[in-house]
Simulated assay, not measured.
Amino acid sequence: MTTSLIGLTPAELKSALIAAGVPEKAAPMRTRQLWNWVYVHGTRDFSAMTNLAKDFRALLEQNFTLPRPEVVTEQISADGTRKWLLRAGGQEFETVYIPEPDRGTLCVSSQVGCTLTCRFCHTGTQKLVRNLTPGEIVGQVMAARDSLGDWPSTGENRRVTNVVMMGMGEPLYNFDNVKQALSIVSDGDALAFSKRRITLSTSGVVPMIKKAGEEIGSALAISLHAVRDEIRDVLVPLNKKYPIAELLEACRTYPGVSNARRITFEYVMLKGVNDSLADARELVQIIKGIPAKVNLLPFNAWPGSPYECSDWAQIEKFAEVVNRAGYASPVRTPRGRDIMAACGQLKSESLKARASDRYAELASAHVGK
Results as ranks from 00 to 15, higher is better:
residue 1 M to A: 14
residue 1 M to I: 11
residue 1 M to D: 13
residue 2 T to P: 14
residue 2 T to G: 09
residue 4 S to T: 13
residue 10 P to K: 13
residue 17 L to N: 01
residue 20 A to C: 10
residue 20 A to D: 05
residue 24 E to S: 14
residue 24 E to Y: 09
residue 29 M to T: 14
residue 32 R to Q: 15
residue 37 W to P: 10
residue 43 T to D: 10
residue 45 D to T: 11
residue 50 T to C: 06
residue 65 T to W: 11
residue 68 R to D: 13
residue 68 R to A: 08
residue 69 P to F: 10
residue 74 E to W: 10
residue 75 Q to P: 05
residue 75 Q to K: 15
residue 76 I to H: 08
residue 77 S to D: 07
residue 79 D to M: 02
residue 83 K to S: 07
residue 85 L to V: 10
residue 85 L to E: 09
residue 92 E to G: 06
residue 95 T to G: 09
residue 96 V to Y: 05
residue 97 Y to T: 00
residue 105 T to C: 11
residue 109 S to P: 07
residue 112 V to N: 10
residue 112 V to P: 06
residue 113 G to T: 04
residue 114 C to N: 03
residue 114 C to D: 04
residue 114 C to M: 02
residue 117 T to E: 13
residue 117 T to N: 13
residue 123 T to G: 10
residue 124 G to N: 07
residue 124 G to C: 04
residue 125 T to K: 10
residue 126 Q to C: 10
residue 127 K to R: 15
residue 132 L to V: 05
residue 136 E to P: 07
residue 139 G to A: 10
residue 140 Q to G: 07
residue 141 V to T: 08
residue 142 M to P: 08
residue 148 L to T: 11
residue 152 P to T: 01
residue 152 P to K: 05
residue 152 P to G: 05
residue 153 S to M: 03
residue 158 R to T: 06
residue 159 R to Q: 15
residue 162 N to Y: 02
residue 166 M to Q: 04
residue 167 G to L: 05
residue 171 P to R: 01
residue 174 N to I: 03
residue 175 F to Y: 14
residue 176 D to N: 15
residue 176 D to Q: 13
residue 177 N to W: 02
residue 177 N to Q: 12
residue 182 L to D: 02
residue 183 S to F: 03
residue 184 I to Q: 00
residue 186 S to I: 01
residue 188 G to N: 12
residue 195 K to P: 09
residue 196 R to S: 05
residue 199 T to L: 09
residue 200 L to K: 01
residue 203 S to P: 01
residue 204 G to W: 00
residue 207 P to C: 06
residue 208 M to I: 00
residue 219 A to D: 04
residue 221 A to G: 06
residue 224 L to F: 03
residue 228 R to P: 02
residue 229 D to I: 02
residue 229 D to V: 04
residue 232 R to D: 00
residue 232 R to N: 03
residue 232 R to M: 07
residue 233 D to R: 07
residue 234 V to M: 12
residue 238 L to H: 03
residue 240 K to P: 09
residue 240 K to E: 12
residue 241 K to W: 06
residue 241 K to D: 06
residue 249 E to N: 12
residue 250 A to T: 00
residue 256 G to C: 01
residue 259 N to K: 14
residue 260 A to I: 06
residue 262 R to D: 00
residue 264 T to Y: 00
residue 264 T to V: 04
residue 266 E to K: 01
residue 267 Y to T: 01
residue 267 Y to P: 00
residue 267 Y to M: 03
residue 274 N to W: 03
residue 274 N to G: 06
residue 274 N to H: 08
residue 278 A to D: 15
residue 281 R to E: 15
residue 282 E to K: 15
residue 285 Q to D: 15
residue 286 I to C: 08
residue 289 G to K: 12
residue 294 V to T: 04
residue 302 W to F: 15
residue 306 P to V: 06
residue 311 D to W: 03
residue 312 W to G: 11
residue 318 F to S: 00
residue 322 V to R: 07
residue 322 V to C: 08
residue 323 N to G: 15
residue 324 R to A: 14
residue 329 S to T: 04
residue 329 S to H: 06
residue 330 P to G: 08
residue 331 V to R: 08
residue 336 G to W: 02
residue 336 G to K: 04
residue 343 C to T: 03
residue 351 L to A: 12
residue 354 R to I: 12
residue 356 S to Y: 09
residue 358 R to F: 13
residue 360 A to F: 09
residue 361 E to A: 14
residue 362 L to T: 10
residue 362 L to W: 14
residue 364 S to C: 08
residue 365 A to Q: 12
residue 369 K to N: 14
